[in-house]
Amino acid sequence: MPSPCRRRHTEASRPSESRDWAELPTDAVATVLGKLVVDDVLAGPTQIDDILDDYEAYQFEDEDVDELKFEPLKESILWRRTAVMDWADGLAADVLLEIFHRLDHIDVLMAADRVCHTWRATARDEPSLWRRITMRGHEGIARRINRCGMACEAVRRSAGQCEAFCGEFAGDDGFLIYLAQQ
């Protein structure tokens, strides 16, 4: 039998039938969305898109609108106006490489590598990217990765070009021996 607390929660999350939430005043919506992180706003249901459209229309029609109210939303709106450019294949290969150069190499291995074919080719087959390896990561990530394996993979991708390695949550004694042997 569910606890009263649990039941209250279920009732509260039942979809509203009598209220049209899309009719919520724009500033109220902005306040609510402002409490979400940008990712949630972006990944949210399409209704949010509609509401943001309303917001934009509202903003352009009424110059006197209190901009501060929408401040937390600005970033979301900027990001949402995307979708035209082809970030996978449209970027010049050297630009993509420049971007990856600025990432922590843990991010390259764990994420950029798996985004799409083009990104993977850049992340994997460009030894220059691995010339100076920085693997700082963060504590949360350190528990999930095999530090030695990660570091060895990074050095392997450098194809012998690795000149410097800076690691905080990556690498261990075994790796240091491996690095010395390269």
Binding site: D39, A83, A88, D107, A112, R114, V115
Partner: peptide
Amino acid sequence: MKGKSPDQIREVFNIKNDY
């Protein structure tokens, strides 16, 4: 891109998962 998962990155850049 920092600290994001492949899924999150695809979301941010609107990249189709072609795998």
